[in-house]
Amino acid sequence: MSDPTRRAAGPAVVPPRLDTVPQADSQRVSPVEGETVFDLRDVDVHYGSFRAVKDVGFTVVKNEITALIGPSGCGKSTLLRSLNRMNDLIPGARVGGLVSYHGKNIYDADVDPVEVRRRIGMVFQKPNPFPKSIFDNVAFGPKVHGASRTERESIVEDSLKKAALWEEVKDDLRKSALTLSGGQQQRLCIARTIAMQPDVVLMDEPCSALDPIATARIEELMVDLAKQFTIVIVTHNMQQAARVSDRTAFFSTEVNETSDIRTGVLVEFDDTQRIFSNPSDERTENYVTGRFG
């Protein structure tokens, strides 16, 4: 949050096009009611010496759906992956700043990334079921965390029901997950994630590989799941963000004119309604009205 950090970003970085508009930070956001799950401050993500995202700050509230939108290459997926330390898997990736999860920085040295991912699940852009049976896909997480056979059976049924897939697969639990359709596979991946009883579910463009009918089902499911979980979703589809999310963070890219390096920045974070009806930044308005990106 502090100004020194921001200035430390260096003189090489060109300021945003509209100097009059203050950079987004959580001070500008309308007061947040409800329990804060994530509190991000001055988050930077580097791949080696390349800074992919800089100075991001926003909050994620319990049982809400927070959408991250913006043009391609603005770092929204990168940022999402830094919320459950999936970026650790990329050699050279570093996350700076504060990613506070219920008051604890998940990048502190004493934090076990495996425990972080157990609590903060993730659904990927392309459905990625394991090449195992439907049952084993959902039971895998509970199994590695020591759930007994009978526990696993009830968890599988419960999770598939919550993911609105139970009715379609209840007689075929032993069949390979790869025989399911794309939309069913994605709901299976959601079931697999919620089988871990996570606190937060991160979704990285979960519908981009699906047809409109499957997309509608997943959206319906998201709204339903938000009653129990906190959801952060990256989406390219602005209508989707407008339909399902409570809050929206709009990201854009900033181009360094001397080096032509693009860095993702958070332009605006607000209630979804305000972002889509009355945004305070011109870049957001251009984007949501389709004039840019």
Binding site: N84, R117, G121, F124, N128, F140, R192, M196
Partner: peptide, 23 residues
């Protein structure tokens, strides 16, 4: 073995060894 399988497993809170040995 596609990386998406490793990522799916790790995202469920499986350890690296569990991911290798079971997936």
């Amino acid at each position: 073995v596609p990386d998406s399988i490793r990522q799916g497993s790790l995202a469920l809170g499986a350890t690296k060894w569990q991911t290798i040995s079971r997936q």
